[in-house]
Amino acid sequence: MATVTLQGSKANTNGTLPEVNSKAPDFKLVATDLSVKTLNDYKGKKLILNIFPSVDTGTCATSVRNFNKEASELENTKVLCISRDLPFAQGRFCGAEGIENVEMLSDFVSGDFGKEYGLEFIDGPLNGLHSRCIVVINENGEITHTEQVPEIVDEPNYEKALKAL
């Protein structure tokens, strides 16, 4: 279990992020076109998983915008923005913001991604949502970097995530 804060109030997750140098756990997430995506769909690509509670919050939206900007210059890399928001809300946000360089994926069906990656809140006001995390996966499916942001309203360390590629 990891403990993070939301404006100073403690919140716990169901576990801890997968370890660096371990194989990335598989996942089933829903894209904005309602197709199901798995880790295998990105085989041979580098991945940045930008994980957050909801795209309808300022910090989450900022992280999507920042990674969208960076993603246009990354070679053989996909940025996956993952939350429990409905795919319709994710699509609406991307359309309104002109977001085209990242993929929005939803864990709304079962929440299994959040559970498997050890980042689902199990208490506090965001219970059931994902904590703000970054997971970088290389083209061999191995985790090369993780970050669980200790204060939910803070942004992740974009520079460290990009360097881990």
Rank of each mutant, 00 (worst) to 15 (best):
E142K: 15
T77H: 00
S72V: 06
H145V: 10
N76I: 02
H130I: 08
E75D: 14
R65L: 11
T32I: 07
Y42M: 00
S63F: 06
L39N: 13
T146A: 09
L49Y: 04
N68R: 15
D107Q: 14
L49H: 02
G95F: 03
I122M: 14
V102C: 10
K45V: 05
N138W: 06
I82H: 05
T38E: 14
C60S: 15
I82S: 00
Y117N: 12
C94Y: 10
Y117G: 09
N76K: 06
N140V: 02
L47E: 04
G114E: 08
C60V: 08
P87Q: 09
F121K: 07
L74T: 11
Q148T: 13
D33Q: 03
P53S: 09
D107T: 07
E151N: 13
V36R: 02
A61E: 11
G141H: 06
I134S: 11
G98S: 03
V149E: 04
N140A: 12
A96R: 01
R92N: 01
T62C: 08
S106Y: 13
C81N: 08
C94D: 14
I137W: 03
H145G: 08
A31V: 02
G95I: 02
S72L: 00
K78I: 10
K46M: 02
G111H: 14
V79G: 14
S131E: 12
T57E: 13
L34M: 14
K46H: 06
G114M: 10
I51T: 03
S83N: 14
G44R: 01
A89C: 11
S54K: 12
L86T: 14
D41T: 04
S110Q: 08
T146Y: 07
S72Y: 02
L47K: 02
D123I: 07
E100V: 01
T144R: 04
L119S: 07
E151T: 01
C60I: 13
F52E: 11
N127I: 15
G44F: 02
Y42E: 07
G118V: 05
L74M: 11
V109C: 10
P53K: 08
T146V: 15
F121R: 00
P53A: 10
K78P: 04
S131W: 00
S35T: 05
R92H: 05
